[in-house]
């Protein structure tokens, strides 16, 4: 006891702290890895994102306030959207997605804002010279695609991110090949909508030079049974039969064209409470 008293207390405290630190470090490192693997903890943002972050967002990362700051920044993103301040919106969403990369909803919003809203604005805003509008249109669409790529890196199984970027390819860029590729990815994922497998074929059918591939695929779907005998599918198969000059005996029967006509058409967008439209 008397020996213990002679050792300065500060030294004893530092030794205990260091010993504790060294003992727990390997355990904690493994725990962090496990928590990241089970998606319970978000990995730290990469260095490039750290550079882009404002001070408050960086402090949020350090202070464990990520979700809270991300939520408030989403509101800022909405403000950017209302003000049609697309460049600012792009930056805001870079920070938001860096703060909460596992939140699918942020990625989808970023793609929707840039790929659909910003590009639509560029189509309509006559105050901007046409050349500039076109350039910006493609820039924003490209930014949306970049968000989609990063989002898919973070959430590889995301149907929603793919659905959103497919819409950009389909509605804005008329990039049928990419749209077909994206729907092709969607159809193989869990929770994919039924239409994804048909859409894959429909957009493939629009790509010049891939008609044969599209025909084989869509015919395969048609052959699965009456459930698949939808008007668009039949129409596309017929169109491709014409293009590919498929011999008549191999073509699908005439009567099928009207088969599903009685079935009511779904609206393109689903109306939701509060008048919110899912794009």
């Amino acid at each position: 006891m008397s020996h213990f008293k002679k050792i300065p207390r500060t030294v004893v405290i530092l030794v205990v702290l260091a010993a504790f630190g060294l003992t727990r470090a390997p355990f904690e490192d493994r725990l962090v890895r496990d928590l990241i693997d089970t998606k319970m903890v978000v990995p730290p943002p990469g260095m490039t994102v750290l550079d882009q972050m404002g001070q408050s967002a960086l402090m949020a990362t350090l202070g464990g306030l990520r979700p809270l700051v991300a939520s408030f920044m989403s509101l800022r993103g909405y403000e950017n959207f209302s003000e049609k301040n697309w460049d600012e919106l792009h930056q805001t969403y870079q920070v938001i997605t860096a703060l909460e990369p596992r939140e699918e909803f942020h990625w989808v919003n970023a793609i929707w804002h840039l790929g659909i809203n910003a590009t639509a604005n560029m189509e309509l805003d006559t105050k901007i010279p046409e050349f500039e509008r076109k350039r910006r249109f493609f820039n924003y669409a490209q930014q949306a695609i970049e968000f989609a790529d990063k989002g898919i890196d973070q959430i590889p199984d995301s149907v929603e991110i793919r659905k959103q970027v497919a819409e950009v390819y389909r509605e804005k860029l008329k990039d049928w090949s990419s749209a077909a590729r994206t729907y092709g990815e969607i159809k193989d994922l869990d929770g994919a909508p039924q239409y994804a497998e048909r859409f894959h074929g429909y957009f493939l059918a629009k790509v010049p030079g891939r008609e044969r591939e599209a025909y084989d695929y869509l015919k395969g779907l048609y052959d699965k049974g009456a459930d698949q005998h939808l008007p668009t599918l039949i129409y596309e198969v017929r169109r491709l039969e014409e293009i590919l000059k498929i011999p008549y005996p191999e073509r699908i029967p005439e009567a099928d064209l009207n088969r599903n006509r009685a079935r009511p058409q779904k609206p393109k967008s689903k109306p939701l409470p509060g008048g919110v439209i899912i794009p």
């Binding site: 904690e28 962090v32 998606k39």
Partner: peptide, 20 residues
Amino acid sequence: KIFIPNYQLYSFSHGIIQGE
């Protein structure tokens, strides 16, 4: 790493809140 507690570990609530 040695002297400061690892508070980041406790951010596992974020994953749960996100529905993981």
